[in-house]
Design a protein around this nucleic acid. Structure first.
Length: 276
DNA sequence: ACCTAATCCTGCATGC
DNA sequence: TGCATGCAGGATTAGG
């Protein structure tokens, strides 16, 4: 399920491979994915537009076009862009097809139809994001432990796992990297935020940045469905130490057996020995 | 203020 | 083999 590292990987690939190309045709086999336009209006606006930038905020891709519009794309769990040299075989999960001037085809697929695409004027995107209230970008150099502490203070009564999943607290962290960061920093997911000591916050801050940057460097994790725009899996999955590791012994070497329980509706994995 | 359940949706794993 | 069940989950929302 795409989180910051997976979305960032897709962003980089689109920036390198698609920016500069021009959309020459659009079809929308699954119009419900478009949250702000009809298929006809969408196609009319996009045909002839050049992709001029691929940005990201939280888990949202921001694709800027020369027509002054930006596509905001959320992959949710199974959304994916796929870039191919020639027109792909028809797939029932394909939601949007972009024909490019280069002759290549970019599709947006989503088996579970959770993802969405919105269109906004590029100059209004900053305001849109402001209204969504996303928290700081964890890999931003300005995201210090102090900033993290002040964000957490807005969620003081929650369990730390749920604060990490709240995009208004910190942006881009999802279920996998929340569990990994808590495992790395030795904090139990059920801990209340206001019970965290400064040293805990500093450790967690460092763990989030370390793990997310490593995962970005590895092209993300393919735990279930994630594929990049070339249909390849990410390389970080084998490096996960907590997610999906329930029943196995803790890699910290403390003799703990990782457990799993549902917390806030999300499968949560942790080591009962070193995570306190 | 916080919690859980339901919702959206399909594929896959499990169990009988 | 085939059928039913449940589980996975990002984010939002309704209800407790």
């Amino acid at each position: 399920m795409p989180e910051l590292p997976e979305v960032e990987t897709v962003r980089r690939q689109l920036a390198a491979a698609v920016v500069g190309d021009t959309i020459v045709g659009v079809t929308v086999p699954y119009p419900k994915v478009l949250q702000t336009q009809t298929s006809a209006a969408f196609a009319k606006a996009m045909v002839g537009a050049d992709m001029v930038a691929a940005r990201r905020r939280a888990k949202v891709l921001l694709l800027d076009f020369s027509n002054g519009m930006t596509l905001l794309v959320h992959l949710k769990m199974t959304g994916r862009f796929l870039l191919t040299d020639r027109h792909p075989e028809q797939r029932k999960e394909t939601e949007v097809v972009f024909l490019l001037a280069s002759g290549r085809v970019l599709t947006f697929d989503d088996v579970r139809h959770f993802g969405w695409i919105k269109m906004r004027r590029t100059h209004e995107v900053a305001r849109y994001l402001e209204e969504e209230g996303y928290g700081p970008e964890p890999l931003d150099p300005l995201f210090s432990a102090d900033v993290f502490r002040s964000r957490l203070a807005l969620h003081s009564g929650k369990r730390i796992k749920q604060a990490l999943l709240d995009q208004t607290c910190i942006a881009g962290v999802g279920n996998i990297y929340a569990d990994e960061s808590l495992w790395e920093s030795g904090i139990a997911p059920i801990r209340r935020v206001h019970r965290l000591r400064t040293a805990d916050v500093v450790a967690l801050h460092g763990a989030i940045r370390l793990i997310l940057s490593r995962a970005v460097a590895d092209g993300g994790s393919s735990a279930n469905d994630y594929l990049d725009i070339f249909g390849r899996k990410g390389n970080f999955f084998p490096k996960l130490q907590a997610y999906g590791k329930d029943g196995t012994s803790c890699a910290k070497g403390d003799g703990g057996i990782l457990r799993k329980r549902v917390l806030g509706g999300r499968g949560t994995h942790w080591c009962p020995v070193h995570q306190k």
